[in-house]
């Protein structure tokens, strides 16, 4: 029997699908690679680290191999007072955010300044590095750029970390891992919409706010307030602590799950957290048998809850 071979059909199919991918993948990519990073985008990606989801350096999403964001009020070498400055500390072995090994991601100007003035090409993951965000001029225009302070000022990660109190260290990168792992983004979007949302949730993100960030975790199904600027609306660590432990403590109508399990075994003072007792007391409170709800334990320094709160408060 003479079989039809569908030669024309197969070519048409290749043309149709290839054309579609040309328009929807190749052409937008030309526009997207031209986008230069904003200062906000540079800071965000430096504080998040390389990946916010599964990666080989953090396969169980425990917040391993992530940078620490440190608020410096004095020079860590000399001790001289300085304007409060955020330093992004990558301890030895922590994977850099992609824009350090691939500065092209930063876009014109940002890339050039980061290489020429910031010396980011001299940073080595094995030795660790401390990054700052500066502003400079390139071909007459202002751009933010990344300064590798380990190369330019000899600020090593241990020098910087040992010069500050724990309350000035934020584990934002590890907190983003918690945000992804715990599925916060299934209800809380990170994308105020362009058509409305300005008044309550704040300005929508700009084109260059995401360079070197992955996953962007915009979220698609908003069942809860947008969080892109939550740190500007509510900067209370105590409120966040209570809200994560049991959202009904601060918002009786909330449908958010309780994230008390992120506290782990012990609280900040090293005492074992008795969850059963807490829940019994809380039930007594909701039943009207207690006047006040039980106190929420302060999360330990290395608890998941602390990291998540650091991340949430960093969303300004």
């Amino acid at each position: 029997m003479a079989f039809r071979e569908y030669k024309i059909g197969a070519r048409m199919f290749g043309l149709a699908l290839g054309g579609s991918m040309m328009i929807t993948l190749y052409m937008p990519s030309l526009d997207i690679v031209k986008v230069g990073s904003t200062e906000y985008g540079v800071r965000k990606s430096l504080s998040f680290g390389r990946v916010g989801g599964f990666s080989l350096e953090d396969p169980f999403l425990r917040g391993w191999s992530k940078p620490k964001t440190v608020l410096l009020k004095k020079d860590p070498r000399t001790g001289a007072a300085m304007d409060p400055t955020y330093a992004y500390v990558y301890e030895p072995g922590v994977r850099f955010t992609s824009s350090i090994p691939h500065p092209r991601i930063l876009g014109v100007g940002v890339k050039d300044l980061s290489l020429e003035k910031g010396h980011i090409n001299e940073a080595r993951e094995a030795e660790g590095a401390v990054f700052l965000v500066q502003e400079g001029r390139y071909e007459g225009k202002k751009y933010p750029y990344i300064e590798n302070a380990t190369a330019t000022r000899n600020w090593t990660p241990d020098v910087v970390l040992s010069s500050v109190k724990d309350s000035d260290i934020q584990k934002i990168g590890s907190g983003k891992i918690m945000f992804v792992r715990e599925g916060c983004w299934w209800c809380h979007t990170l994308l105020p919409e362009e058509t409305q949302d300005w008044q309550v949730f704040g300005a929508p993100p700009a084109l260059g706010d995401f360079n070197s960030e992955t996953p962007t975790a915009f979220g698609s199904d908003r069942k809860a307030p947008d969080l892109l600027h939550i740190g500007s609306r509510n900067s209370s660590r105590e409120w966040m602590m209570m809200h994560f432990f049991n959202p009904r403590l601060v918002q009786p109508h909330s449908i958010m799950p309780r994230f008390d399990y992120l506290w782990g075994e012990k609280d900040a003072s090293g005492n074992r957290i008795d969850y059963d007792k807490w829940r019994a007391d809380y039930n007594a409170y909701t039943a009207g048998e207690r006047v006040y709800p039980p106190d929420v334990p302060v999360p330990a320094q290395d608890s998941d809850a602390r990291m998540l709160i650091d991340f949430i408060l960093s969303l300004k």
């Binding site: 937008p28 997207i32 390389r50 084109l207 992955t214 962007t216």
Partner: peptide, 17 residues
């Protein structure tokens, strides 16, 4: 994006692609 560590809007767009 996961195989080759593509980031930013490229990642966001390819997720929805």
């Amino acid at each position: 994006p996961e195989y080759f560590q593509l980031t930013g809007l490229t990642e966001a767009y390819l997720t929805w692609w």
